[in-house]
Amino acid sequence: MAIDFGSVKSYNSNRGFGFITGRFLNPHRRVFFHIKKIKAKHPEIAEKLDNEENFQGLNLWYEIEQTQKGEQVKECWLHKDEIPENHVSELSDLIGKVENIWKNIDSSKPSWLDIVTIELVGTNRKDELSLQRNNLENQRREAGERKRKDVEVERLRQIELQRERERQEVERQKQIRVDKENEVRKLSAKYSLSIDEAEELYLLLEEMRPKNFTHSKQLSMYIVKQKLGYKYKNISGILTMQDGGNEWDFHGGFPPKIYSNICKELGLDNQHTKARPIDFRSFKDVSPTDKF
């Protein structure tokens, strides 16, 4: 046997039965009752039901029994104090459930909670539980507000960090440009090159150093293969070579002065052939169709 607290949800006065919906055992379960169960102890309530008066808000404590036709109300009481002592342990369990409901701020407060709490533990305890729930809700709101503030502070911090990173990147790029300009001027002065030639030499050296070439031929072949003549058109071009009575054009070569400078800066060895350069035309001075 089990007891529950519920309200009358439906009643057929012609047939003398209806259904009660409980609060604890199964909030969605309807338990059958017959009017004679109510007439035995509460004839005034039975009279209201039989007269089809509004039963909304009619709350009862009741004991459930299992029959061949299903669950039904075995006995009912209007107030907790009327419940027999043999249900003391069940009432104690219900008190624990009610207090947990008050403390569970993850769920909205049921409309019936005040009535049931007063029935079980009295008005003073209900007020205490209500105050505790309000405190818990306030603490959650305050915690949520702190979290929102922390999130906003972190968001602003990240924005500031991003701005600082962008500022540092601007400074870094500025320093790179300054370093490049300084290196270009050094190369220009070191090898008596124009600024345009020195800048291309600088860019070529920066691009080629990671390749770890060991011979000038590797560098020339790479420039030809990658068609970098357009990129280094001032210092690279068509080099006319001569070996004995033979002459040929080498696309992607360098004039002797530039060739020597590149080998020196990259530490490249030459092939030590008998061929010698006799003419050079930079790519900037030849038509695109003649470059490769």
Score class of each variant (00 low, 15 high):
residue 1 M to E: 12
residue 3 I to Y: 11
residue 5 F to R: 13
residue 6 G to H: 07
residue 7 S to P: 03
residue 7 S to V: 10
residue 8 V to Y: 08
residue 9 K to G: 05
residue 9 K to D: 05
residue 9 K to A: 05
residue 10 S to V: 06
residue 14 N to F: 14
residue 17 F to C: 10
residue 32 F to Y: 12
residue 34 H to C: 02
residue 34 H to F: 10
residue 34 H to D: 08
residue 40 A to L: 11
residue 41 K to E: 07
residue 44 E to L: 05
residue 45 I to L: 13
residue 46 A to K: 09
residue 48 K to I: 00
residue 48 K to T: 02
residue 52 E to K: 14
residue 52 E to Y: 08
residue 53 E to Y: 08
residue 55 F to E: 00
residue 57 G to C: 05
residue 57 G to W: 07
residue 58 L to P: 00
residue 59 N to Q: 05
residue 60 L to C: 03
residue 63 E to D: 04
residue 64 I to S: 02
residue 65 E to N: 12
residue 67 T to D: 03
residue 68 Q to L: 09
residue 70 G to L: 03
residue 77 W to G: 00
residue 85 E to I: 07
residue 86 N to Y: 15
residue 87 H to F: 15
residue 91 L to I: 13
residue 91 L to W: 03
residue 92 S to N: 12
residue 98 V to P: 02
residue 98 V to A: 01
residue 99 E to S: 04
residue 99 E to L: 01
residue 101 I to F: 06
residue 109 K to D: 00
residue 111 S to R: 05
residue 112 W to M: 04
residue 113 L to S: 04
residue 118 I to W: 02
residue 119 E to R: 08
residue 119 E to Y: 14
residue 120 L to E: 08
residue 122 G to K: 10
residue 122 G to V: 11
residue 123 T to M: 01
residue 123 T to H: 02
residue 128 E to L: 14
residue 132 Q to D: 15
residue 134 N to R: 12
residue 136 L to V: 09
residue 137 E to H: 08
residue 139 Q to M: 12
residue 142 E to G: 00
residue 144 G to Y: 05
residue 145 E to G: 00
residue 146 R to G: 04
residue 149 K to Q: 14
residue 150 D to N: 07
residue 154 E to T: 05
residue 160 E to S: 09
residue 168 Q to F: 04
residue 169 E to P: 00
residue 171 E to P: 00
residue 176 I to C: 02
residue 178 V to Q: 14
residue 178 V to F: 13
residue 181 E to I: 00
residue 181 E to R: 06
residue 184 V to I: 15
residue 184 V to N: 02
residue 186 K to N: 12
residue 188 S to E: 07
residue 195 I to E: 09
residue 197 E to N: 09
residue 197 E to G: 08
residue 199 E to T: 15
residue 200 E to T: 00
residue 200 E to H: 03
residue 202 Y to Q: 06
residue 202 Y to G: 04
residue 203 L to Y: 05
residue 203 L to T: 08
residue 204 L to W: 15
residue 204 L to V: 14
residue 205 L to D: 01
residue 206 E to R: 10
residue 207 E to I: 08
residue 211 K to F: 03
residue 211 K to I: 00
residue 212 N to W: 01
residue 214 T to W: 03
residue 216 S to K: 09
residue 217 K to Q: 14
residue 218 Q to V: 06
residue 220 S to Y: 06
residue 222 Y to I: 08
residue 223 I to P: 02
residue 223 I to Y: 09
residue 223 I to N: 07
residue 225 K to A: 12
residue 230 Y to D: 14
residue 231 K to P: 10
residue 237 G to H: 06
residue 239 L to S: 05
residue 243 D to W: 14
residue 246 N to E: 15
residue 246 N to H: 15
residue 246 N to W: 13
residue 251 H to D: 05
residue 251 H to S: 11
residue 254 F to D: 05
residue 258 I to W: 13
residue 260 S to W: 08
residue 260 S to P: 06
residue 261 N to M: 13
residue 261 N to D: 13
residue 263 C to I: 06
residue 268 L to Y: 02
residue 268 L to W: 03
residue 271 Q to S: 10
residue 271 Q to A: 06
residue 277 P to M: 11
residue 279 D to T: 03
residue 281 R to E: 06
residue 282 S to K: 13
residue 285 D to G: 03
residue 285 D to Q: 05
residue 288 P to K: 10
residue 289 T to I: 12
residue 289 T to V: 11
residue 289 T to Y: 12
residue 290 D to A: 08
